[in-house]
Amino acid sequence: MEINITTHDGATVLALTGRVDTTTATELELAINQQIELGNRKILINFSGVTYISSGGLRVLLATAKKLRKEGDRYALCCLSAEVHKVLKLAGFTSIFTIYPDEGEALARW
């Protein structure tokens, strides 16, 4: 899995490509934690290049939600494929996360 990190007006976008499996879920967690440690507390994860997420990946998303709950923090997902959307929806995660259809809409709302 590739993680491409960009910043837009104070928001950090992690664009993922590939599978979020056992190994890459750990890489994703590391990348997110590094951004939070750098003080970047507006995190948008772009899933446009992802068709598979493991339970390990779900755990990372949930752990991030727990870390970004302070006043002013922002955390959202965007560009979900049908496969990833289905897993998140049926697991109940869509009631925890904000999900946007695309990156532009997410950043515009922040």
Partner: peptide, 17 residues
């Protein structure tokens, strides 16, 4: 099976959360 187990595990994470 992979999809079903990911949903099951995710649902359990959600309850736990």
């Amino acid at each position: 099976v992979s999809e079903l187990f990911t949903i099951m595990a995710g649902r359990l994470y959600y309850v736990s959360y």
